[in-house]
Design a binder for these strands. Structure first.
Lengths: 244, 244
DNA sequence: GATGCTATTGACGGCGCGACCAACGGGCAA
DNA sequence: TTGCCCGTTGGTCGCGCCGTCAATAGCATC
């Protein structure tokens, strides 16, 4: 019902259209993978001819990078809002782990794996990935420093601790495409445990806090609901070029 | 000098030819990526027509899976020889970390990222990746158990400890395509530190042991020297299809 | 040296992709 | 209402890929 085969052409402002394109691409990146960001695929999604996408992004690679940035940025803002709100660092960190652990985070893990691999062949994407790695690191490090400043956390080197946490998260996410679950609880909790250990928190602090937050939740900025595109179809169509 | 434009065709036994194809594919997987395993690319490498590759592997995906398996298997045998030889578990583990850390291991990290991502679209590869994850896990777990049995290591749950180590290694390797180095020493050592902590070893044990082994080295099964293909060219040619 | 099996060739069809461009026609400004 | 700018179309290249198949020619065997 969304689009009749022959729709009257709709003219939008460049800014709107561009945003629409990037959003659609980000949604596809998240659900189907960065390789599926294709002139034809995005055009179909928006009920628009492929050439139009080409018009806004003369080089598809730039759209891919942009889409990754949008998706990763949105997730980061969900997990670690730049605006600290009125919560304690411990609460914020607990919330972070609650959201960054479990199957709900799998799409994001997949996206990161996807992007880190594709970076091998796409310089523009590689830059964007590097940029967002720095963003995530910075945001988490700020949180750690806040916690240290107000006495909730204890660590000699917030920077190192931050990276340690991120390394474990990356390591846990590496299998998002291969092993679904069936991992011991201890492993699933590994990121939290690392944080608690390195921040001088009593074991269980972050998890208990997280459970409490779960109960009280409802004010969260909204979980993962990027855009339309309801179709998490797993088997797309065709090609993956190494160089465009 | 390797192949004149019009070579006399050479007829080999199916077994030999097949092995040759898989080896070439494995080498390309390691240096250029699994997406570069292409009928044409492999054929060119071997001075043979693409159709021949197709003859031995009617579905390219199977060759890709096979190539990954060969490369990953060879590396595993280098890092954790199935034949325990005459070394103590501590020595073997130290050697493992010495080889699995640093830039020399980057190609392998890249391969794993590559495979884990591509698994999303290629069932045959996904199976193979799962299989090799189990292999690596099993091999390392055996080593841990050996160490526990002979009193060198202490851990309540060898299985969990094994996975913890592997998670950290995966997390460290995740950036092989994006950030070259410039990581604090503490981070680079994170896998070793995790092992030492979880195995009840004094900090520095594995590194010192590794340095000693470095000095005495020369009998090692050979570092990373998989096959011919000397060309680590970074910018291949063209496409990557999602589904073949 | 002749014969036959089969490893190997060469050529083709079909696909999806990105890039390009001249022509069209919405919808805002005059 | 009219005119015109520019967002949008539709079609067309050329590319690299896989999969298929009859024809060719090594080479072992007799």
């Amino acid at each position: 019902m969304s689009s009749s085969p022959q729709r009257k052409r709709i003219r939008k402002s460049p800014a709107d259209r561009r945003a629409e394109i990037v959003d659609a691409a980000a949604a596809i990146a998240l659900t189907e993978g960065l390789e599926c960001i294709t002139l034809r695929r995005i055009g179909e999604q928006l009920g628009v001819r492929p050439g139009l996408i080409s018009h806004y992004f003369p080089a598809v690679e730039d759209l891919v990078a942009e889409a990754f940035g949008t998706a990763a940025g949105a997730e980061l803002n969900t997990l670690l809002p730049a605006d600290p709100a009125t919560r304690s660092p411990t609460d914020r960190l607990a919330r972070f782990f609650a959201l960054a652990t479990g199957a709900a985070y799998d799409d994001i893990s997949r996206l990161w794996i996807n992007a880190r691999h594709l970076s091998r062949y796409r310089p523009a994407l590689r830059d964007r990935v590097g940029h967002h790695e720095a963003l995530w690191r910075g945001r988490l490090e700020d949180l750690v420093r806040d916690g240290v400043d107000c006495g909730e956390f204890r660590t000699a080197d917030p920077y190192v601790t931050t990276i340690q946490i991120l390394v474990v998260i990356d390591g846990l996410g590496a299998h998002a495409n291969t092993e679904a679950a069936d991992r011991p609880e201890v492993i699933t909790r590994m990121a939290v445990s690392t944080a608690e250990r390195e921040l001088g928190l009593e074991s269980g602090t972050l998890t208990r806090r997280s459970a409490a937050l779960d109960a009280a939740r409802g004010d969260a900025p909204a979980p993962p609901d990027p855009d339309g595109t309801p179709d998490p179809a797993q088997a797309p169509a065709a090609a993956h070029r190494v160089l465009p």
